[in-house]
Design a binder for these strands. Structure first.
Lengths: 261, 261
DNA sequence: GTGCGTGGAG
DNA sequence: CTCCACGCAC
């Protein structure tokens, strides 16, 4: 029996977040960190910094946009960076691997821009194809941790002002049902499972200092299949980096899940 | 009798140099600092930061390029930002004022790009018109401190490799004679006057880490008219900021002159 | 508001 | 190499 900390963090560029990220890693002592929006090609990823503090890194990079990575104290097996599905593989948004009998799948779902735009269509198609990817390659009986920036706030409680934000990106019914379909396949939203009524966001717009008014959304998730649910001890959003003024933080905060394995 | 420190500093953007500049000001305790390449319009100049530590600021700003300022512990009189001469007033390159019976003239002379280009023509025309401005408005009997980035290395001793740099910008004969003409009007190059054989640069290219090999040029000057020469106690280039790696320094170092008045 | 890439300036 | 402006993404 060992405590295991797994984390999802949209860093909004790993180059500009390097210093703060490593300060945070020293504090947080997570065993696995799943990064989104690293915004670098693999050759520019700071492997040495991670290796120096004992992480093995698996990186699917891309310049300017997107980019995901898994950094783990224990090496992963069966790492995959491609799904052989056109929409999922179009950009660097998915990376996965196995840690013993547990699958980790780190996904940066598309933002979607505005309803009716090609990006919105792409977001919904991405969700649909991701469902297909799950169904074809995994079983709800597998131990899977699916985590990342889903770019959807599942319920009204997951946004700071559901009336103001009605029908804006991340809160629309077709987005919510796309994410709900993933959950219905066999995942549990660990945070909402443990804290049914807690208002806690993971992202706050840079504009207008939204974080100081706690005007945010919960769009970053750690989902687990049912076989893993008994192991979940806690889930929390770590505000330490997000509430700093310098070095400038990401607009997201990391979400950390404690499992007893 | 009081010691008086006057300084010229091409900061290469006051916005990106703010933190380092104020660290330096605290150390250096200069009475007057003349800035070049502030690269901000007057409304974006950090007046409050200077006022907090007791400086009165006089600013001729411009967005993106150029921009000069004089910040002084004692208020200036007869501040001028225009010369009514077309070439001199085309960009924000000159600001002046009077401190008792001493005139301060802070100039950012044009860089000149390459011989034969319009910018090179502009540089020579600027020098020529500046000479005219001096002749028409001042006398060599006045107490004048003319300081700034002259973008000319007067002699071979003022560049790290005169052979390599022969006929490159800042070392060409027509540029040197343009600056020499200013001196001949009635100025003394305080640094060379006190240190006839000293090799000391004020600017080092960012490229190739030139500062670490001391591959630079002396292009920033503090010139004084003869009536002020007996007051000059020392002149030195302060490398403190330039040799730091962070916050990133300007490619120039400040030149400081001590006068006993 | 804060990233990144580009292109001009030095 | 490091500034700035611009345009785009989020």
């Amino acid at each position: 029996m060992a405590m295991f900390r797994v984390c999802t963090y949209n860093v909004n560029s790993i180059r500009s977040r390097r210093e703060l990220l490593f300060m945070w890693l020293e504090r947080s002592q997570v065993d696995v960190i799943c990064l989104q929006e690293t915004k670098v090609e693999e050759r520019a990823f700071p492997f040495p910094d991670f290796e120096k503090i004992g992480y093995h890194c698996y990186v699917k990079g891309q310049r300017t946009y997107n980019g995901v990575a898994i950094c783990s104290k224990l090496p992963l097996q069966d790492v995959f960076k491609d799904t052989s599905m056109d929409i999922l593989d179009k950009e660097s948004r998915i990376i996965g691997g196995r840690l013993g009998d547990i699958w980790l799948i780190n996904v940066y779902f598309p933002h979607g821009d505005l309803r009716g735009t090609p990006k919105f269509t792409y977001k919904l198609a991405f969700y649909q194809q991701f469902y297909q990817f799950l169904a074809e390659n995994f079983s709800p009986e597998d131990k899977i941790i699916l985590l990342g920036d889903m770019n959807v706030a599942l319920e009204d409680i997951d946004v700071y002002d559901p009336v103001l934000l009605r029908d804006t990106i991340g809160t629309m019914e077709e987005e919510r049902s796309a994410l709900r379909k993933i959950l219905e396949w066999g995942f549990v939203d660990t945070f909402r499972y443990l804290y049914p009524n807690k208002v806690q966001f993971t992202w706050w717009d840079y504009i207008g200092g939204a974080v100081w008014k706690d005007q945010g959304m919960r769009i970053d998730y750690i989902l687990v299949t049912k076989p893993l649910l008994p192991s979940v001890r806690d889930v929390y959003v770590d505000m330490w980096a997000r509430k700093r003024r310098s070095p400038k933080p990401s607009d997201h905060a990391p979400v950390v899940c404690l499992l007893e394995l």
